[in-house]
Design a protein around this nucleic acid. Structure first.
Lengths: 254, 254
DNA sequence: TGTACTAGCCTGTATATACAACTTGACGAG
DNA sequence: CTCGTCAAGTTGTATATACAGGCTAGTACA
């Protein structure tokens, strides 16, 4: 027997759905409280709670006197939260596409074996794919998956379902460790991400545990010029609306 | 003329104060909604909002039928999430040293004024210092602090106590937002961090709130070749911690 | 033409009321 | 003594209502 969700949650889900599907684009106007009252047959306080929480969660921006508008996340993602690149892009109202470059069974050696805590030569599936946002390359995913953990990994169509989504569908994520570093990538990475020579890239190296052991090891290369990670720590203070304002920055002067 | 805070916010501040001061210990019972109604002369919905938001922010745990209790989760994650470069280095058993390059009173302009939510021309203290680990430069800290928040900032000896440590000693951190990006730095940054031409740097831009307003804005430049951020994630409700283990990695082959 | 003002919409807050669901402890029947 | 029931207190949600304050467009006026 399934308990019905609260109405304010239903409203939130509805609006998040419209944003994720692309029906509502960043900066688009979201129905006002009074419009929700009429359309959804709820009281204004209920509509207010739904929109206020969406505001607190960063989905929308509200301006007294003007209205509620879809927030533009641009190219941000949350630090320390495990993310799926496709979802991130969908949340921004953009279209995600990915191209599989390699999908093969290999024997773990060196770094990979060490990172996954397995013997050299253990079967692993090696995935290499490029993710694009509105056609622009934004992530090169270089991932190794323990073959014993995901036996059907070779048959999967990762252009349709991202490896991240597939792996979490097999078994819930239990633990993750990530390292972020900056580097100037080599030719191969430059080519896949379409970045210029001498430009920096942001690299996220992530190991994910399931059932007490590491099951996948991924290197995620992003073009430094058009990708950044954002983190928000909300210890105390108000439930102040997270501003979607993005701080433009200049390089250190002279 | 100061605008009075909303009553639900006053309630939140009151309870946060009792927790911060130690009057309320973890697992202690917080006044119920009805008790707040009588004691504070507010409606139950207002008390409900205050307690609900404190719950969302992790200060308290609420159980229907039982009551509201002080959470003990926050005290753990607090220290671990916001890091001080000197503490990080000390954790690795190395020696930290720093050199102050600039420590001057300035008027906030452009990006800094915008990031700190103040008028152009507001007094800010500009700090520029290089942190070194075992004598090797590892961070260039370019920080602006609201002068009204830290009036003695100009007299402080930041070679002895890092700005981060000093600021948290003035007032507990309430909220932080950070952006991580990769870039190839300009000459000035290269010089201070002693990095080669064309090498990447990892830049952390961080804004920190206290008392509901941003009080400091910092750009932390790190040499890409010898610095990385590590994070550790454990999904359900458990605390996150930074892991000191560092995954060695190889460049993407070919 | 341009300026000031106002009507109307929007969000933000506060209150009173109501009912549902959950938890605990007290009380009484067996 | 044990078990079930019930009452009281608590949180969770929903509604109707009210007023304050911000924003905008259009209108009246100079």
């Amino acid at each position: 027997m399934k308990q019905a969700k609260p109405r304010y949650q239903q409203l939130k889900d509805l609006i998040i759905g419209r944003i994720s599907s692309g029906e509502l684009q960043p900066a688009d106007r979201v129905p006002s409280e009074n419009e929700l009252v009429e359309a959804m047959n709820v009281s204004r306080m209920t509509a207010n709670r739904a929109l206020r929480e969406l505001n607190d969660e960063g989905y929308v921006d509200r301006v007294a006197g003007r209205g509620t508008f879809v927030s533009d996340y641009r190219s941000q993602s949350h630090l320390l939260e495990v993310h799926n690149i496709a979802d991130e892009i969908a949340l921004r109202g953009h279209t995600h596409s990915s191209k599989v470059i390699r999908q093969s069974l290999q024997h773990a050696r060196g770094e990979v074996a060490k990172a996954l805590h397995v013997q050299q030569g253990t079967d692993v599936v090696h995935l290499l794919l490029v993710h694009a946002e509105n056609g622009i390359p934004i992530q090169l995913e270089d991932r190794h998956v323990l073959a014993s953990f995901a036996p059907h990994c070779l048959q999967q169509d990762f252009a349709a379902v991202t490896p991240s989504a597939y792996l979490t569908s097999i078994s819930p994520l239990q633990e993750a460790e990530q390292v972020v570093r900056a580097s100037v990538p080599n030719r191969a990475v430059q080519k896949y991400l379409d970045i210029k020579d001498g430009e920096a890239s942001l690299v996220v190296i992530r190991r994910t545990w399931s059932g007490g052991r590491p099951v996948t090891f991924a290197r995620l290369h992003h073009p430094g010029g058009r990708y950044e990670l954002t983190g928000h720590y909300t210890p105390p203070g108000t439930s102040r609306s997270t501003s979607s304002e993005i701080v433009q920055l200049e390089e250190l002067r002279q």
